[in-house]
Amino acid sequence: KKYKVVEVKENKDGTVELVVENENGEKKKITLSKEELDKLKAGDTVELK
Rank of each mutant, 00 (worst) to 15 (best):
K1C: 15
K1Y: 02
K2L: 10
K2M: 11
Y3D: 06
K4L: 14
K4G: 02
K4E: 05
V6H: 03
V6A: 02
E7P: 00
V8H: 03
V8W: 05
V8E: 04
K9G: 05
E10F: 03
N11C: 14
K12V: 10
K12Y: 12
K12C: 13
D13N: 09
D13Q: 02
T15L: 05
T15A: 03
E17V: 10
E17L: 09
E17R: 04
L18Y: 02
V19A: 03
V19I: 11
V19N: 03
V19G: 01
V19P: 00
V20L: 07
E21A: 07
E21K: 04
E21S: 05
N22F: 05
N22I: 06
E23P: 05
E23Y: 05
E23K: 04
N24R: 11
N24A: 14
N24P: 01
G25F: 04
G25D: 01
G25W: 01
E26V: 09
E26Y: 07
E26N: 05
K28R: 13
K29Q: 11
K29P: 02
I30F: 06
I30T: 01
I30H: 03
I30A: 02
T31A: 04
T31M: 10
T31Y: 09
L32I: 14
L32F: 07
S33F: 12
S33E: 11
S33G: 10
S33K: 14
K34V: 09
E35H: 13
E35P: 10
E36C: 13
L37M: 12
L37E: 03
D38T: 11
K39V: 08
K39S: 10
K39E: 15
K39P: 14
K39M: 06
L40H: 09
K41L: 10
K41E: 13
A42Y: 04
G43S: 05
G43H: 04
D44F: 01
D44I: 06
T45N: 10
T45Q: 02
T45S: 02
V46P: 11
E47Q: 06
E47C: 08
E47V: 01
E47Y: 02
E47W: 01
L48Q: 09
L48F: 02
L48P: 14
L48D: 15
K49C: 15
K49D: 15
K49G: 15
